[in-house]
Amino acid sequence: MQIEIDGLSFHVRLDGPETAPVLMLSNSLSSNLSMWDAQIEAFTRRWRVLRYDQRGHGGTEVSDRPVSFERLADDAIAILDALDIPKVHFCGVSMGGMTGMTLMTRHPKRIERAVLANTAARMGPAELWNARIRATREGGMEAVVDATIARWFTEAFRARAPETVAAVREMILSTPAAGYAACCAAIRDMDQREAIRAIRHPVLVIIGAHDPATTPQAGEIVHAAIRGSRAVTLDAAHLSNIEAPDAFDEAVTAFLSEKP
């Protein structure tokens, strides 16, 4: 379905039992809600799964205005409001995890438990992001797709799952370059290292043992900053939900199913 938020049409999808508690999934940079396809069978056994494309990604329109994580968090809340959903569990990978951190500090009453996967509270240096913005403005997503795939998956996974990797490559190429660039700027300007110390939600931090983008060290910084959080390390690179889906699903399901 499409929902209008802040003058833009957002692509949103619901799966699973209508009466089940809601689990909201938030996508990474240069992806769309299909990145969660491997999780849907497992997650819909327990939850009503709400997926959406962050602004400028997938089937959600691109804005000509600057993007911040405050805006991305407000987008998520506007989706919940439009669907009359008061509170959700939340799971986000990479940029989705950064959105989740902001949700818990900006809209704490709307989140129950949260999973922050393969993410970081700050990602520098600025020039790295400026270079990616320049590259896509000059050459489109073709200019960054190969390097992105190399960061997202280990060499061993790329060798044993070429069809999966090819599908992800097409997903990256289908991302609007302007949407990618705007969210790159949001990541470049983000620093949540101090803000997340105020989070009091139950939080699971998922770390990819071989993640060169949001490194294990970056994940441990998030874990250390959020009081009472837990961390689990999976044998994967950046998109651990795709490279290690069974272990990812098990970790998320066990954590979100715990009784208060």
Rank of each mutant, 00 (worst) to 15 (best):
T148G: 11
R122F: 09
R132W: 14
N118A: 06
G139K: 13
I111D: 01
A126K: 14
V168D: 12
A167G: 10
R151N: 08
V115W: 07
A181G: 08
R158H: 03
A167D: 07
M123A: 07
R134W: 04
A150P: 00
V115E: 10
A121L: 03
R113I: 09
E163D: 11
G124I: 15
G140C: 04
E112L: 10
I111R: 02
A182T: 03
T164W: 00
T164I: 15
L116E: 04
A117G: 04
G140R: 12
T148M: 15
A121W: 03
E163P: 01
V165L: 09
W152P: 05
A143F: 06
A121H: 03
A159H: 07
T148A: 15
K109N: 12
A167T: 08
A117T: 02
I111W: 01
G139M: 04
Y180E: 04
L116W: 02
L116M: 04
M141C: 14
E127N: 05
A167Y: 07
A120L: 14
P176C: 07
T154M: 11
I172K: 00
D146G: 01
A117S: 12
A156M: 12
M171W: 02
R160K: 15
P125G: 02
A186H: 12
R151M: 08
A135F: 02
G140D: 06
W152Y: 09
A166F: 01
R122Q: 10
L128Q: 07
C183R: 13
N118P: 01
V115F: 13
G139R: 12
I149C: 07
F153D: 03
W129P: 01
I149L: 13
A185M: 12
T154K: 15
E170T: 14
F157A: 10
A177T: 13
R169G: 05
A181K: 05
A177C: 15
A159D: 10
W152A: 09
R122C: 03
T164M: 11
A150C: 01
R151P: 07
A185Q: 15
T148L: 14
A185P: 00
A126W: 00
P176L: 05
G124L: 14
E170S: 12
A126S: 15
A167I: 01
I133A: 15
M171N: 03
A181F: 07
A131R: 13
N130Y: 02
L173Q: 09
A177Y: 11
V168G: 06
N130F: 06
W152V: 09
A120Q: 12
R122T: 01
C184H: 04
G179T: 10
I133C: 13
L128P: 00
G139V: 06
